[in-house]
Design a protein around this nucleic acid. Sequence first.
DNA 1: CTTTAGCACTCTGTTATGTCGAGTGCTAAA
DNA 2: TTTAGCACTCGACATAACAGAGTGCTAAAG
Lengths: 343, 343
Amino acid sequence: MDLEAREIEVLNIIVQAYIDYATPVGSRHVAKKSTLKLSPASMRNIMTDLTEKGYLTQPHTSAGRIPTQKAFRLFVNSMLEPIALSDKNRESIKNVLVQTDLDFSELLETTSKLISSQVSQVGMALAPQTKLARWHQLDFSLVRPGLAVAILVFHGGIVQNKLITLDEKITADDLKKYSNYLNDTFKGQTFLEVRLNLIKEMKEARDQFNALYIKALSLIQTAFSEKENREIYVDGTLYVFNQIDQHDLSSMRELLEFLEQRSDLLELLDKVSESSGLLISFGNEFYGPKLENWTLISTPYQVKGETMGMIGTLGPINMNYSKVVPLVDYIAKMLTDVLDARF
Amino acid sequence: MDLEAREIEVLNIIVQAYIDYATPVGSRHVAKKSTLKLSPASMRNIMTDLTEKGYLTQPHTSAGRIPTQKAFRLFVNSMLEPIALSDKNRESIKNVLVQTDLDFSELLETTSKLISSQVSQVGMALAPQTKLARWHQLDFSLVRPGLAVAILVFHGGIVQNKLITLDEKITADDLKKYSNYLNDTFKGQTFLEVRLNLIKEMKEARDQFNALYIKALSLIQTAFSEKENREIYVDGTLYVFNQIDQHDLSSMRELLEFLEQRSDLLELLDKVSESSGLLISFGNEFYGPKLENWTLISTPYQVKGETMGMIGTLGPINMNYSKVVPLVDYIAKMLTDVLDARF
DNA sequence: CTTTAGCACTCTGTTATGTCGAGTGCTAAA
DNA sequence: TTTAGCACTCGACATAACAGAGTGCTAAAG
């Protein structure tokens, strides 16, 4: 099942041509591009072999060949030659991200837009799972009796606020005491740890009959046990119009549906976030035939060495990987740098 | 240029038919539907008159007639008969909006999604202009020396937070003093008024050589003089796939471009927000021929009697106005109720 | 055994042609 | 003023013809 050297060369040429022209590749073109100096007829023989081995398909009997997903997998895994970014390009990317006045959400949104405009494809950025973010500080701000805003600041400068209703008798001083106690108890913990420890603390507090603790804990529990509303930024969806064959409108529709209906998307992005580096996934692999012909390139970003979320781009399977991969990679590195500089 | 009674009836029938079937309406259909008991030939004469007066067009010589924008304008202004919402429908809408755990942004997002799903069209909701929102309360939360979060709560429960850098010597107590002073000074004022008064206060403080005041004022100034990042929620963009003739993909593209590129959209929505009630605007009127065949239905919502922003829906010019108009209207009323109940 | 030239074959896309049906505009009569 | 009748127009659809691209196969050459 392994490929001979010249089969690999032919496959490489075909993939490259398909990336450049997005049209079935014929034997003549391969013969011209190849260093092997073979005739189209010979190329045809090789291409037949590659077809039998599952690397090429024919849209119809007398058309050229199109690389299969299997071919693209091989291509990105072992034939891809990234093109280095120009200094100018690096510079301009850096400048966009190093704007001090952006808060965390804005930074992610900017990143998503940046990716999109740089690669002319859908760009995206996923905020960290709250449960992985580390508690830095909690404050309450009493709005009126019975209503307060809870402000949780996480490592990396992520700020979340939430309206919470409370007993009308609770004063600003009470809240101050609560937050002091909670900060002492939970500082530096991840959300997951907080949730675990909450239960323990609750029990201990009850044992000690400590009303203060119990109130504080139940406050924070209702505020943060809710469904988390993850932020996903998706930009440049309009690029799919340029990338689609006018014929299969349905493929475009599938993609847009996938992007709009966030739950599957979120699940996917969370999964790829776990990767330790840049990941190339094909639609077929992560969503089935509905998204065949689409590729997700994703890479996680870190804060203080901890993976927080991911950024990436979604484009046609015949996108220009040599350009896109280094770009996404570089942007992730810059984002990580910027976030590390924050706290 | 005025229309005779029977011309109005014919036009009404044609508009209705075009709303129902989205296809050119022929004289036979009009003759069947009309109470006038005229033959198709007579209808043709009337239709010719209406065409000359600019209310109908023909896609080609031997096709039926299509109502022009002028016809739709007349229709929505004086022929529209809204269909009352069912109690069940009212109830379900109310239930969605009366979720106490939604903060202001979530409420708007929910509203936009609600509109979209109810009318099967693009739904949208626009957050208030910050400059019109009334200051309720400001709090600072010191994150670490030199960095704080400012939390501004506006009337209606709108919460904004912003990271601000400050002198490392400033303590939490200092910040408490600042916020006390600022709240005393600016409570209940709109952003616009705040900006005006800032300058005045600055001057007075300087005259009094009051370092505290000056520091507090300059803090709030940098934090809130920035570009405001308006929130617009747009949902259900996928519905345009169902609403478009497969042929003019370009019309769809124009619309999606208009929706994605937010600046024109924002300008438009701000303008329609100023209306005192529900507004029906045709694409041609607000964006030119690129969006002809699209209609925006918008209506403002209020907090304590003050107009804050708008909600609405964007759909094909031959949408079912009788259903959509009452729905949007009712949802706006519910939203206003919910917001009023908040503070 | 590998490579290649030659050729028949297949499929797409385009253009030309004809037919059907829907709907109109016009005219002349009711 | 209304209507019946009729010629006319145009889009939609089907069919056929044809060019072009590219293949698969075979037989000969290296």
